[in-house]
Amino acid sequence: MPSKTTTAPDRSKGNAGWGLKAAAWFGVLYLNLPILFIVLYGFTTDEASYSFPPPGLTTEWFAVTWSRQDFWDALALSVQVAFAAMAIAMVLGTLAAAAMYRFKFFGKEAVTLLILLPIALPGIVTGISLRSAFAIGDIPFSYITIVLGHATFCIVVVYNNAIARLRRSSPALIEASMDLGADTFQTFRHVILPNLATALLAGGMLAFALSFDEIIVTTFTAGQQETLPIWMFRQLARPHQRPVTNVAAIIVMIITFAPILAAYYLTRDTDDVAGSGK
């Protein structure tokens, strides 16, 4: 969270020097000023170009966006894909974390690397490799292929959150539960799951946010479908109704910011939200 360095200085620890303050504010502006411009141009009266200052301000683009069926289709597809990718990631990521935590086996480090790889690889590499894999398998590009593409990197954030929490819990907890009469299922339900719950929820929300604004992998794994980011990208190339893109961007920001914020608050007292940096 880059904003952490810029929160009000803790008076009990003394004041930061003015140089540090200036640098911090520069960092904040550098990161966030462009975003403010995106919001600003969502209200401009200039349809074809982004001139500064805007010739006038209007809210008509919200109405225009509202009436555009292609916008609604793209938004609906993105939400569906994000939920599906999140669901797959939560199941597989949790299982992978449980297995990696519980068992020692030959090649464990290599498998860990393989699980983490999709988030480290450039999206274009993941995208191209998935595209050729789907082509070899003769799988038609569809909603399913988009979900599969997103799931590759969504699994990582769930896995990271789950395994961080597991590593911090005492293995004696499971033994204690069994010692007190709980079988495997009861132990999972009453001890493991409640301990993992916030980490899983945080991981799932990050996965949702990652999937929702993904464009590179989607470009290679989508057929005729347009997710919201792709729709926005194509929208920019058109000469008229440009501010509609900005309105969509504002909506994307709101939809992705809420789960990331929630994930941060869910896990800040326990451990770092692994993967929140992406």
């Binding site: 005492s170 004696a172 907890l173 033994e175 204690a176 007190l180 009453h190 301990n195």
Partner: peptide, 26 residues
Amino acid sequence: VNTVFQDYALFPHMSVLDNVAYGLMI
């Protein structure tokens, strides 16, 4: 048989009362 563990292994997400009542709940 029941065990008192070396690091106590109390369930961190439960209250003290729920910890003690865990075996009875099961």
